[in-house]
Amino acid sequence: MGTLLVVAWQRYLHSLGKRPLITKAITSGTLAAVADVLAQKMGGAKHLQPKKSALMAVYGLCFGGPTYHFFHKIMDRVFGAKTDPSTVIQKVVVEQLTFGVMYNLAILTYRAYVVEGLTWAATKAKVRRDYWGVQKQGWKLWPLVAFINYSFLPPQLRVLFANVLSIFWVCFLIMRSKVATVKDR
Rank of each mutant, 00 (worst) to 15 (best):
S53L: 08
L55G: 04
L55F: 03
L55Q: 14
L55N: 10
M56K: 13
A57L: 09
V58M: 09
Y59N: 10
G60P: 07
C62W: 12
F63K: 11
G64Y: 00
G64F: 00
P66S: 09
P66L: 05
T67S: 07
T67V: 10
Y68W: 12
Y68G: 13
Y68S: 15
Y68C: 13
H69A: 01
F70I: 01
F71V: 06
F71D: 04
H72P: 02
K73Y: 03
K73T: 12
M75Q: 14
M75G: 04
D76T: 10
R77D: 04
V78N: 04
F79A: 01
G80I: 03
G80L: 00
K82S: 10
K82V: 03
T83R: 14
T83W: 00
D84P: 06
D84V: 10
D84L: 04
P85W: 04
S86A: 10
S86V: 10
T87Q: 03
V88Q: 00
I89Q: 12
K91R: 15
K91N: 09
K91Q: 12
V92P: 01
V93E: 02
V94L: 09
L97K: 13
T98M: 02
F99S: 06
F99E: 05
G100M: 11
G100D: 10
V101F: 13
V101C: 09
M102L: 15
M102H: 15
Y103F: 15
A106F: 11
A106W: 08
I107D: 07
Y110H: 11
Y110T: 11
R111M: 08
R111W: 10
A112I: 11
A112M: 15
Y113T: 13
Y113Q: 14
V114S: 08
V115Y: 10
V115G: 06
T119V: 06
T119W: 08
T119K: 14
W120T: 14
W120V: 15
W120N: 13
A121I: 05
A122D: 15
A125N: 15
K126F: 03
K126C: 02
K126Y: 08
K126I: 00
R128E: 12
R129S: 12
Y131T: 03
W132L: 03
G133Y: 07
G133K: 12
G133A: 09
V134Y: 09
K136Q: 13
K136T: 13
W139R: 07
W139I: 01
K140L: 10
L141D: 09
W142R: 12
W142M: 05
P143H: 08
L144E: 12
V145C: 05
V145Y: 08
A146R: 12
A146W: 02
F147K: 07
F147H: 08
I148P: 06
I148E: 00
I148N: 08
N149V: 00
N149W: 02
N149M: 02
Y150P: 02
S151Y: 03
S151R: 13
F152L: 11
F152A: 09
F152E: 05
L153C: 01
R158Q: 13
R158W: 02
R158C: 00
V159L: 01
A162T: 12
N163I: 01
V164E: 04
V164D: 05
S166I: 00
S166A: 03
I167S: 01
F168T: 15
W169T: 02
W169E: 02
W169R: 05
V170K: 12
C171Q: 03
F172H: 12
L173G: 04
I174R: 14
I174G: 06
I174K: 14
I174V: 14
